[in-house]
Amino acid sequence: MIVTPTWYLVLAAALFSIGAVGMLVRRNVIVMFMCVELMLNAVNLTFVTFSKTLNDLSGQVAVFFVLVVAAAEVAIGLALIVAIFRRRHTGTTADDISELRG
């Protein structure tokens, strides 16, 4: 048996779905963040797979940009979390932070 690109894509799809479901069901904001990272990684895997399939380096370059965005997002997101946690001492799950409602 040979490992075809399809295998990678199926795996990436599975990881993406797991990440998405985790993002929806977990209430700890930090874990939700980790699930976002999972989704991003699944996308990276697809990029690299297609880079190989299509014989094009651009896919790998795209991974770099995704990485940069992910890093920036983590920096800002975690800073936001720190700021929020500092303000409120109880009830720090995603459901508790719901002041912005209509």
């Binding site: 399809t6 894509l9 199926v10 799809a13 599975a14 993406f16 779905s17 797991i18 998405a20 479901v21 929806l24 297609f50 880079s51 190989k52 399939t53 299509l54 014989n55 094009d56 380096l57 651009s58």
Partner: peptide, 28 residues
């Protein structure tokens, strides 16, 4: 929803949605 999306992604893989032209300038 997670299962639906997974199934949809697999389903889409059978189609030609990922056919880009092969690169001539930056070959792997």
């Amino acid at each position: 929803l997670g299962l639906v999306v997974f199934a949809l992604l697999i389903g889409l893989m059978g189609n030609h949605w990922a056919t880009g032209a092969q690169s001539a300038t930056a070959a792997l």
